[in-house]
Amino acid sequence: MALFEEKIQQQLKEILKSMKEEVTIVNFTQEIECPMCRETRLFVEEIGSLSEKLKVKVYNFVTDKEIAMRYKIDKIPAIALLDKDEKDYGIRFYGLPGGYEINSFLGAILELSGKREPIPDELMKRIKSIDRDIHIQVFVSLGCPHCPAAVSTAHRLAMENEHITADMIDANNFVPLSQKYNVTGVPKIVFNDKFELIGAHPLNTFLDVIDRLKDYGINID
């Protein structure tokens, strides 16, 4: 139990007090733990011990293959967040959400627990009208101060519409994947492998890109 300093632990406890309902943290690792897998497991276990409303489940990516497939986990370390009924909204964190990304992780937990800021009606209508599968990958580096905002926007979209799934990906933990997407600036936000945004953007820009995907008739693989 040494990942969080005492001061941070207290702050986390304080923040997690405002959770409304339970949230389940599902972590995938493996027996001989991959780079950052051990730290990520310790991270979820430690954070899980800071609130009674957090449940933690740790699975083995290799031996619990069926469960990994059910959650469509294709790389580790991975974290999925589920709501009080263990419903999966497609909210994923690939790599340890440390550095500035702790903020998007806590934000997703609080929002999934029911503590959500309202979205203006007009934007909400646009979100609800999305009827195609949209997969958003947000590449970040942990030292990037404006990345958590992009991750939170993507995750919020996933919460509000079941056709949308959203991943945070620590680009420095998944180097070949980042190279595949030519990530040299973060946040880099990739929509269904087709369109990308670079930098922090407001919710309506995300929706504009999703609208353009519709025009192209692109669906998720």
Binding site: L3, F4, I8, Q11, L12, E14, I15, S18, E39, F43, L96, G98, G99, Y100, I102, N103, L106, G107, L110, L142, P145
Partner: peptide
Amino acid sequence: MDFNLTSLSFLN
């Protein structure tokens, strides 16, 4: 591992 927590954005 550092954690750059912006705690106040969650509180109050």
